[in-house]
């Protein structure tokens, strides 16, 4: 199943990836191959198997509503490239 370049560009944009024309073409081929593989899986009859997104068989893993210690702020901010007033500083966010 061959993807179009436009589809690859769309996915790249959603993933915030800036790809060169050569990279776009390379991704188009690789992603198409992956989709082909799934195409193959889709031929298997799974009509009698309930869909699941889990492989652990666990259900209802919950915790009580109790407080646990948070990180110290210095720790929380340790990897921030830029910080200001105890907060992460990022580039201004413009509405698209």
């Amino acid at each position: 199943m061959a993807l179009t370049l436009a589809e690859v560009e769309h996915v790249a944009r959603l993933a915030r990836l800036r790809l060169s024309p050569a990279e776009l073409e390379k991704m188009r081929e690789q992603l198409s191959n992956i989709l082909d593989h799934f195409q193959m899986l889709q031929q298997i009859d799974v009509s009698t198997i309930p869909p699941t997104a889990q492989v652990t068989d666990l259900v209802n893993v919950m915790r009580d509503d109790e407080l646990r210690p948070s990180l110290a702020r210095e720790q929380a901010l340790a990897n921030a490239p830029v910080q200001q007033d105890g907060m992460f500083r990022v580039r201004a966010i413009f509405e698209e």
Partner: peptide, 14 residues
């Protein structure tokens, strides 16, 4: 929560 600064940045509080 985002706070926008006058000098064109945004501060993030989680």
């Amino acid at each position: 929560k985002l706070t926008h600064t006058a000098d064109g940045g945004s501060l993030v509080d989680f």
